[in-house]
């Protein structure tokens, strides 16, 4: 068996391309996620979208439309509950997204979705990735890069110093909504390959690795997607040869890279990522 053997199969080529793109997109969006301490939102949103996916299957609605609307609704509800200030954002995420996840599970139980299908959503699968889905993920990638390029300074300002950004004329609320939208769309289009339970790691790990090796925001936006894409691509090949789920292979590889960088960069790297690694 050669290293390139799986590339003879179309399903693998599609999965490989989606995993590479997913890694790059998650790495890019993940920079904002970790710097805004939104890691828990990424985790919660993926759970919430699972509820939407199950409901879409039961109602016979298109997966991306149903789960996407569900995810966006959850994100807006989290924002609304957190802004009211009665309970913290972390508690709001905990209640709303886990309830949504539980609803998804209940619907799957009642309406008898196959156990294998649930496992695929939870842990990721390369089976059944169509060429259309590869194109869709590529479009999400192009859209994400376009949004970040067009709003680079405003997004940076709103992330680094929201209060001063607001005074300076940046619509901080709109920038936050834009980030939530990018996050929800990224999770929606990449969760099939990485899995609901593991996607938050792909959002966080490449960004933290990038943070350990650079002190520049602009360089972090380049390094994190490269690390994510590399983990996605190599992880897929490992997944095939080791016969383990694609999500697990990608995340284990990312964790391995994290440990290597953490060790090699020593105190300097740990100092850089000070606010992210507790």
């Amino acid at each position: 068996m050669t290293l390139f053997e799986p590339f003879q199969f179309e399903f693998f080529r599609n999965g490989f391309m989606v995993a590479t793109l997913a890694g790059a997109i998650c790495g890019l969006v993940g920079v904002y996620v970790v710097l805004r301490s939104m890691s828990y939102i990424g985790h919660g949103l993926s759970h919430s979208i699972f509820g939407g996916a199950a409901a879409s299957a039961v109602l016979g609605v298109n997966f991306y439309l149903g789960a996407g609307m569900w995810g966006l609704l959850s994100a807006l509800m989290i924002g609304r509950v957190a802004r009211r200030g009665k309970i913290g954002a972390d508690a709001a995420i905990g209640v709303i997204t886990t309830a949504s996840f539980a609803l998804g599970l209940a619907l799957s139980n009642v309406f008898g979705q196959a156990k294998r299908s649930i496992e695929a959503v939870l842990f990721g699968s390369i089976l059944g990735v169509t060429t259309l889905e590869v194109i869709a993920v590529a479009c999400v990638g192009v859209l994400t890069v376009a949004i970040i390029s067009a709003f680079y300074r405003k997004l940076l300002f709103a992330t680094f110093d929201p209060e001063v950004a607001d005074v300076t004329g940046v619509n901080v609320g709109r920038m936050e909504a834009l980030l939530m939208l990018m996050l929800a769309v990224t999770i929606l289009f990449t969760m099939k390959i990485v899995g609901v339970l593991l996607i938050s790691a792909l959002l966080v790990t490449p960004a933290v690795i990038a943070r350990m090796v650079t002190n520049s925001f602009a360089r972090m936006l380049v390094i994190a997607p490269l690390v994510g894409a590399a983990c996605g691509a190599v992880g897929m090949v490992i997944s095939y040869h080791a016969d383990i789920s694609s999500g697990a292979a990608i995340i284990l590889l990312a964790a391995f890279v994290f440990i290597v960088v953490y060790t090699v960069t020593g105190a300097r790297g740990r100092g850089n990522a000070g606010g992210m690694i507790h």
Binding site: L35, N215, S216, F217, R219, M220, N272, M276
Partner: peptide, 18 residues
């Protein structure tokens, strides 16, 4: 109130408001 762990250089701080 500044997040000193944020990955940002002096010129990036000055330019962000432009």
């Amino acid at each position: 109130t500044v997040n000193w762990n944020f990955p940002i250089t002096v010129s990036e701080v000055v330019l962000m408001a432009a």
